[in-house]
Simulated assay, not measured.
Amino acid sequence: MYVSYLALTLQDQGKYDESETMHRRTLEERKKILGPDHPITLNSARNLATVLKAQGMFEESETMHRDTLNGYEKALGPDHPDTLSCTNDLALVLQGQGKYEESETMHRRTLEKQADILGPDHPIILMSTNNLGVVLKHQGKDDAPSYTGEAEGILGPDHPNTLMSTNNLALVLQLQEKYEESETMHLRTLNGCKKALGPDHPHTLMSANNLATVLRRQGKCEEAETMHRRTLEKREKILGPDHPITLNSAHNLALVLQDQGKYEESVMIHRHILEKREKLLGPDHPITLSSANNLA
């Protein structure tokens, strides 16, 4: 039990590598003692799948979430809170891979059942609504809802769920090409994350990356470059230079350098990313092919 709590604490602190090790240890122990289909074992599997997603290991996370969701549905039923939470988690993993239609279906299923059980103003409903809103906007559907204001009123402006809701709204505004509003929301999220989580927490770095991206969209390339370099440097120290999230930061830096005509450094970074992704993902993976396209 202590190992499980420690894994969750490390996860909350953004120490994902250590948390993953602890979660794997807990999962194996619970499989041996309780069996693979016990709800407590399934909780461990879900925790591990969540920390894998946080590290950008989407394929492994998706597989584990699907297996865990099947286990929950058999052990607890389709409407149990743990089953619905796992459905939401799977929807987020699918969204992270660009599988928007299936993600939307999962989000709608979760939201409908949660609203019946918890009521429309529950904080979990507000988060589920925001998650659905983001995936709808990725598909160009303008009926995407957002409940950032309600989340702030219920939870407070610096609550992690409020900050995630604010981040989601900023991303929706960015997809609508409302860059000034998006920048304001991203900056608000970043300041809140620094205050609540610290400057080096993964969520803070994600927020900094998102803000830098929208700055680039507005042509504020020097400011975006500075922010991308800072984020990349921190991710290299915390996650390592070959981590998928670190490589995403390097990709974003290469793009903003390219926009400024700094082609030599941009090409050098793109080549580095391609080499790493070929080793990590294989030459035919869609992300690897996208990296190769950047050098075409």
Results as ranks from 00 to 15, higher is better:
Glu28Arg: 14
Thr68Ser: 05
Pro202Gln: 04
Met185Cys: 10
Lys15His: 12
Tyr2Ser: 13
Cys86His: 02
Glu101Ser: 08
Arg277Cys: 10
Asn168Cys: 03
Thr204Gly: 04
Thr166Ile: 15
Leu132Ala: 01
Thr166Asn: 06
Lys113Asn: 08
Arg277Lys: 10
Glu275Asn: 14
Leu289Val: 10
Gln97Phe: 07
Glu180Ala: 13
His251Leu: 04
Gly198Met: 13
Gly192His: 02
Arg30Val: 05
Asn161Gly: 09
Asp121Gly: 05
Thr184Val: 06
Ser103Glu: 01
Leu8Ser: 15
Ser146Val: 10
Pro81Thr: 04
Asp79Ala: 10
Glu20Phe: 11
Leu255Met: 13
Arg66Met: 10
Pro145Asp: 08
Ala212Phe: 10
Glu278Phe: 06
Leu76Ser: 06
Leu48His: 01
Asp82Cys: 04
Ala254Cys: 10
Pro123Asp: 08
Gly133Thr: 09
Gly149Val: 04
Gly140Arg: 11
Asn168Val: 07
His138Ile: 08
Glu183Gly: 03
Leu274Lys: 13
Asp89Phe: 09
Leu169Lys: 04
Asn130Leu: 14
Asp17Ile: 13
Ser290Tyr: 13
Leu69Gln: 04
Asn130Arg: 05
Gln139Asp: 15
Glu59Trp: 07
Asp200Leu: 05
Asp242Pro: 02
Thr105Ile: 07
Tyr2Phe: 12
Cys86Glu: 04
Thr9Ala: 13
Pro241His: 02
Pro244Phe: 03
Lys32Phe: 11
Ala54Arg: 00
Ser4Asn: 11
Arg216His: 11
Asn167Tyr: 07
Thr246Asp: 07
Tyr179Ile: 01
Pro123Ile: 00
His38Pro: 03
Leu232Gln: 09
Met64Pro: 04
Ser266Asn: 02
Pro202Leu: 02
Gly35Arg: 12
Leu118Gly: 03
Arg217Glu: 11
Leu289Lys: 15
Leu69Glu: 03
Asp284Gly: 01
Gly14Pro: 12
Asp116Asn: 05
Ser291Lys: 07
His23Gln: 08
Asn209Gly: 12
Leu280Lys: 05
Leu76His: 10
Gly71Pro: 00
Asp116Ala: 14
Leu111Gln: 07
Val3Met: 15
Glu62Asp: 01
Val267Arg: 09
Arg229Asp: 08
His270Pro: 01
Arg108Lys: 15
Ser207Glu: 00
Lys31Gly: 06
Glu264Ala: 11
Met57His: 13
Asn47Trp: 00
Phe58Asn: 10
Asn294His: 15
Asp284Tyr: 14
Gly149Ala: 11
Ala208Leu: 05
Ala224Cys: 00
Glu264Met: 01
Pro78Leu: 07
Ala49Glu: 00
Leu92Arg: 15
Met227Trp: 06
Val214Asn: 04
Leu69Asn: 00
Glu104Gln: 07
Met227Gln: 08
Asn47Leu: 00
Arg277Tyr: 02
Glu222Phe: 12
Asp200Trp: 06
Tyr16Trp: 15
Gln97Tyr: 03
Met268Asn: 08
Glu29Gln: 15
Ala292Tyr: 00
His285Thr: 10
Leu163Trp: 04
Ala151Leu: 13
Leu92Met: 14
Met268Gln: 08
Gln13Asn: 12
Ser165Phe: 06
Ala212Arg: 08
